[in-house]
Simulated scan of single mutants.
Amino acid sequence: MTSTTLADRAAGAVLGALIGDALGVGPHWYYDLDELRREYGPWIDGYTAPRPGRYHDGLKPGDLSQAGIIAELLLDAVLESGGYDAAAFTAKLDGDLFPQLDGIPTHGPGGYTSQSIRETWRKRVLDKREWGDVAGLADTTEAAERIFVVASLYATDPWRAATASRDNTLLTQNDTTVAALTTAFGSVIAALVRGEALDADISSRLFALVHQGRLPFHHVTRPGSTPPLAGSVELAVGANFPSPDALSGVSTAVRSALDPAITIEPASKIAQVYGLPCAIYYQLPAAYYLAARFPNSFENAVLHAINGGGQNQARAILTGALAGAQLGIDAIPRRFITGLSSGAELERKARALGRLAENLAGAAAA
């Protein structure tokens, strides 16, 4: 780990995710991997433009997709409010994003509108429902593609990082398993921004926080997977998830990356091991694997995410957030920042988020 400050790691998580988003604009959603290679060559090593008629047609290399645009709206709302305020974020969706949508997937800023955002738009704009009553059942990473902002912001307060991640997720996705997996991802980001390692013991450390009442998951077993004590009751401090398995799955993926007896070459093929589709339960294990496989190389982590094909954009967003949180913003190769549309401004915002996170941590410790 090259970064020594919380601010650097928080900024790295944010900018790393946005870079991952932009890397996916060209080669997004190629499920025929032979077609991906014909279109983009044997190895994608930077920003590319989408082919005519493909997703995100019309965007330029380095542009953000709609996922990145929404993450930037959340980032802006946090910086303007000095913290996470759901009303500030939803006001930006209402005022800045939704007027540009019409419910057609291929319309709207960023070249494509995801299922959960389309459902939220319909309920909010067409049905005139209130926030809190517009979420849908999409099983995608849509919320995970933005909650790294609040998870990084509140990294030193695990409960707040997790509940802010959960509450932001539930604005647009209300499936409890999706919310659990997304909240677990936010908890991992927070841990890495705090300076913890993405190692085989990370799930045990997260479970320890559950037992301390510092994460909103329930758990009945004791540390080490030992059975519950006779007469013990289930611990459910503020939990609203069906199980704690979203936390235990992190170490499983990490161990597969660290186990010398497991060989996956090139590492991009992890996408075929866990699955190419969009669902969050395919995406997160691959992202955890790649970030653990390349703990000292942001570039290797995100490029293997992109070169795996399928829903490679989401995989690169999640991997970029994890790798950026591990290494810090200064370990991100400059070419990824200079090639990013409005890269200097996005870097400024990411560093501002990092400073805010550090300030909040300092105030809480005072």
Rank of each mutant, 00 (worst) to 15 (best):
P109M: 00
L79P: 04
F98S: 04
W159G: 08
T263F: 13
I306V: 15
P52W: 05
E196L: 00
I189V: 15
L97T: 06
P285I: 14
R160L: 14
N359W: 06
F185V: 08
A316P: 04
F298L: 11
V210H: 05
D167T: 04
P216N: 04
T177C: 00
Q212A: 12
V178C: 13
L93K: 00
A10S: 05
F298Q: 10
A135F: 05
E347M: 07
R335D: 10
A261R: 15
S81L: 00
W159E: 07
S187V: 07
P333K: 03
A208Y: 13
K128S: 09
L79Q: 06
P109F: 01
L73K: 04
P105R: 00
A279S: 15
P244F: 14
G275V: 11
S187C: 11
P244N: 13
A279L: 15
A325C: 07
G328A: 11
T120Y: 02
A77G: 03
A88V: 06
Q212Y: 05
A144K: 10
D201K: 11
A10D: 05
A180G: 11
L340P: 02
A22D: 03
S203R: 10
G362T: 12
L93Q: 00
I270F: 12
L346F: 05
S256K: 09
G103D: 09
N307F: 12
L170E: 02
R118P: 08
T90D: 08
Y289H: 13
A316G: 05
N168R: 00
I306H: 03
A287Y: 09
I202C: 01
P105K: 00
F98M: 03
G53K: 05
T113F: 01
I317C: 11
D34N: 15
F207E: 03
W121C: 03
N312V: 13
Q100Y: 02
F98H: 06
M1Q: 08
R255V: 10
N359F: 06
A321E: 04
I19K: 01
Y31A: 07
E265H: 14
I317S: 11
A323M: 06
Q283N: 14
S152P: 13
P223T: 07
R54A: 15
E347D: 10
A344Y: 02
K92P: 05
R166W: 01
A155T: 07
P295A: 08
T48Q: 13
P333M: 04
A200M: 02
A49E: 12
G339I: 12
K123P: 04
A301L: 08
Y31V: 08
V78N: 01
I69P: 14
T221C: 02
P158K: 11
D199Y: 11
S3R: 01
Q326C: 07
R334V: 14
V150L: 05
Q66L: 09
G320Q: 04
A352Q: 14
V188I: 09
G95F: 10
G46N: 06
P333E: 00
G195Q: 11
A88C: 02
A179P: 13
K269T: 15
D201C: 00
I337T: 10
S256V: 14
A287L: 14
D45N: 08
